[in-house]
Design a protein around this nucleic acid. Structure first.
Lengths: 218, 218, 218, 218
DNA sequence: AATGAATGAGGATTCATTCAT
DNA sequence: TATGAATGAATCCTCATTCAT
């Protein structure tokens, strides 16, 4: 009896996961409008109607996909920072973790990004907006702390506004990921782009380093 | 006869421009999928069927909007480069011109940006994408000439890949403009962002400067 | 063992009644098409599948509700007839009992009325319709016996077709109840309507009375 | 040119009429829910999408059908009254005209009736409700006048409340039409019902006649 | 007997594109 | 050249019914 119940529960949970995975893949690959419930159902191996047993509407499914992915994101960045030694290394680690994670879970990246596109914001519930914002907000805040530390340690230009740098790094990373996610990358090949990920944070860090001999005029 | 012909020509060109302007505005405001041919026609003051006299399909219309937008950018940036003296100043001028132009013509900016979101790409044929990218690619290549000049003049790190830097600057600028275009800016206030526009190119440039004493290891 | 069996029987009968009560309420409030099996199940406190243990289909459930409703009417009217003395009084009593019962149990009334709206009929098989009508037909036939008695006793116009009068009285009563059940009565106030209930049967009866002096020409 | 335009206009108007006619037929035969846009389109000889060129939604189409039919109804009753001579004949003529017109245009009848069914009232716009109510209201008012005249002329029982009689006649007629509209009439055959139409108004009128010799006690 | 997850046919609506005028 | 009516494929969602547990 319990066996039965749990078996059923398990099957249900599996179904839910299958739907979410499929939906994530499709939404992420083709966007909200382009993805049809029919296709999600087919690929998830269930009937169209079944989707509506688990999610009240296409929109609810989309939001669930979003929120689910977003949760893991923050922790990931946190881990990267904890693992790295030294201010500069931490900044670099978080920056690259943001890029790597985004490339691995494009749908999450897209939600994060969409939160900052007016066009799409209306699709997101306030709750989602808040959760997403808080992740970015945390990153920016933590990042600023690191920069401040760096300044205090004499590593970075004392005239630098720490928060500004965080925003700058975030926007740069986002812009690069966007390019990388295009299925046949344009303007630049994938391999070069990979190099650019590392090069970009190097340039950014170098751009804020303190120059002892010749006083920075920034 | 000739009078009539030229009059007709003029009317035709006007119609074309009106359609393009309207389409740009709508694509920019609601995205490709959300924009209907019906609405474009209505707002442009022509009949739905007329659109198809000027553009073979919705996609071609979109492409034309893009190309027109990119060209506008091109001229603008060209002017900025011509006006500035010295490599570094030219790079800064072009970078800032890109931002200013984007803020002045948000719809062009948005349409172009969307072309780099997969959501829109799924609706566009590879041919369309290729066309847009090649224009942007050309433009980035021009930009990298400047960087190459800078390296030759001993201003920038000789290990730097010029084209990469163009891409980096472009993505950074784009990321910042995106933030600036949000109606209720989150994360950062408008004023700070204005500062960041200038600070960002300073950081980027400083990040690639040659360091005579300690040889660049990038 | 027997205890258990009877207990189960009781439970089963209770379930059946609960389902029927709930269905009646819902069918009455929202109509056949608008009422879903899901909602019936929920409100009756059973699972959707359980409904199909008791009733083969939605239609059979509806039919059962109807039949049950008609039977209730039947008993009630029968009682009224038995209690009254004299043909005329019996007819009046049955007529008023029909109205009172309808007002006391609006859902039964509504379900039965709907069975005579083509909208509902399209959802019901001919068999179902036939079943309901035969019950109502029987009931009307009983009623016409009274009229026949009245004619034989020289009370009513001998040219009168007894069954027709039953139908007429039934439709008139139904029409009046319909009006009375409107939440914000239009056309006539509730109080007046109450008077009309009595006045109407008076008029109907007077309309069929034998007129000794001038031979009825109906 | 004008030829063309008018030809086109005519075609459009014809289409509209065809759709309305078809819709009336179907709505009226199967009810709102049972009728599909697909079927209306097919039978009207147009494509599904075409319906939406003429009517914004299924509901708007339904209401248009309703309102269109309702307009002619009032005039019809008016004509019947004008044509008949004498109070009694006028009442009979209007009553029968109501029945005949209802049978000829069932959809109109249904709208009229539905205005008095709580279930359906929510589907009707206030405007429709008002128009429909006014037709019934007019009938009832005019009818009352006739009854009042009859009383003054010594034809009808002086104790009779004129308005009540109007309501009674209206509800009786409605109840009978309802029965007649069932596709395979139940409880009573079509032919008998036809007789009942006339018999019913005879009974009603006879039921309110003044009885000079034996004072009416109603 | 009871459950409730799964099904899939069916229905309203949208919109890019065509074509007769 | 310009029009806008017509098309129908495509999409989201509902719900009666089935069936494994």
């Amino acid at each position: 009896m319990i066996e039965n119940a749990s078996k059923r529960e398990r099957k249900k949970a599996e179904n839910r996961q299958a739907i979410l995975r499929t939906a994530e893949e499709l939404f992420s690959g083709k966007g909200y409008r382009e993805t049809t419930m029919q296709e999600i159902a087919e690929r998830a191996g269930v009937a169209k109607g079944t989707l509506y047993l688990y999610f009240r509407s296409k929109e609810e499914l989309y939001l669930t996909v979003c929120v689910r992915g977003v949760s893991g994101f923050g922790e990931n960045l946190e881990k990267a920072r904890a693992a790295a030694k030294g201010v500069e290394e931490k900044i670099r680690a978080v920056y690259l973790a943001y890029i790597r994670h985004s490339l691995k879970q494009p749908s999450v990246f897209r939600v994060l990004r969409d939160t900052f596109l007016e066009q799409v914001r209306k699709n997101l519930s306030p709750a989602t907006m808040k959760e997403v914002s808080s992740i970015i907000g945390d990153w920016l805040k933590n990042e600023s702390e690191l920069v401040r530390d760096g300044i205090e340690q004499g590593l970075f230009d004392p005239g630098l506004e720490p928060y500004h740098f965080s925003v700058l790094a975030w926007r740069t990373a986002t812009g690069l990921v966007e390019l990388a996610l295009l299925q046949d990358p344009i303007v630049i090949e994938r391999a070069s782009l990979e190099n650019l990920f590392e090069a970009s944070i190097d340039i950014l860090l170098r751009g804020i380093k303190r120059l002892p001999e010749q006083p920075g005029n920034m």
